[in-house]
Computed example of a mutant assay.
Amino acid sequence: MTAQPPVLPAPELQPVPELQPIGAPAGAARLGWPRAVLRTSRPRQWPKNLLVFAAPVAAADRGRIEGVGGALVAFVAFTLASCAVYFVNDVADAERDRHHPVKRTRPVASGELAERHALAVAVACVALAETGALLAADAGLAACVTGYLALSFLYCATLKHLPVLELTMLASGFVLRAIGGAAAAAVAPSGWFVLVCSLGALLVAISKRYTELAALGPAAAGHRPCLRRYTPQGLRTAQRVVSVAMIGAYLSWALLNGSRWAADWHLVTVLPLAAALLRFDRLTGRATMARVEDLITRDGPMLGCELVWLMLFVAAGTA
């Protein structure tokens, strides 16, 4: 009879430690939520809130810029308000963003940031923006912030699906920043100033839609339904018409604003402004997925035109 081999006890299974992503630091999990909140708040978009300084700078008299403190309050208030809009927008567009080649990496769309957390942060940003505007500035700024939030939330809910109207809603956010900065600085902006800001904001809005449609083609309508009503040729033509109108409004503002000496300096600033608009037209003409804001703030020749314009504009204010 053959001897049976001894039965050995099964080795005790040890729990497998949870694996971390390759290259991820040990504290990545702890930093994940704050990083997701910061990414959703879009820090790269915050510079657009510098528009609140436009009216105080434009009204500068012999180098004196009045109301800088109020403008700083407006900058913080609009930064918080715009962050709230980004959080709400990402929740509303989460499902659509998951099918977008770039937006699918957004924290809400990718699941990195829970939707309820995004909405809670949005509520906190709204409360801080409104409270700060009321306590540190005046009712005018608070009204502009409230108007901006109301229009932006309406835009996120329904208006962004209505062609043409959605462009005006998108542009209105920029105009309200400029008017809010003027209210906080106690500066009365001229009608020409408001018109220049409005046309510039509309130009940016049209350019956003053109670059989306040109880069994604027919698939663009799947990510933004209103694009079905636009054509690349129509948007391109509108962009150039608005650019010419903006130059005309700027010339009118330069001729009618301030002293004769300051007006001469302001007329000189039309040259770098026109060069910047031509460069912007060329950049947006490329089928690119780059953000329009990046084209304005990260292109070397564009930054050069903007710097020359700013230097001449400041010189006019000190004349």
Rank of each mutant, 00 (worst) to 15 (best):
Q4T: 14
P6G: 01
L8S: 14
A10T: 15
E18A: 15
E18L: 15
G32K: 14
R35Q: 15
P43T: 00
Q45V: 02
L51P: 00
A55G: 06
A60H: 03
G70S: 13
G70T: 11
L72S: 02
A74H: 09
V76T: 08
L80V: 03
V85D: 04
V91N: 05
R96G: 04
H100P: 04
P101G: 11
V102Y: 13
R106S: 09
A118Y: 01
V123P: 04
V123M: 10
C125Y: 05
E130L: 15
G140L: 05
T146V: 05
L149T: 09
S152A: 15
L165K: 00
L167R: 04
L167S: 08
P189K: 03
S190E: 11
L195R: 05
S198D: 04
V204S: 05
A205V: 11
R209Y: 04
T211G: 04
H223C: 01
H223G: 03
L227M: 10
Y230F: 14
T231A: 09
L235F: 08
V241M: 14
V242A: 03
Y250I: 02
L251H: 04
N257S: 14
W261T: 10
V268G: 02
P272C: 12
L273Y: 11
R279F: 06
F280M: 12
R282S: 14
T288Q: 07
E293T: 13
I296P: 07
R298V: 07
P301R: 13
G304D: 09
C305T: 08
E306W: 08
V308C: 11
L310S: 09
V314L: 15
V314H: 00
A315M: 12
A315S: 13
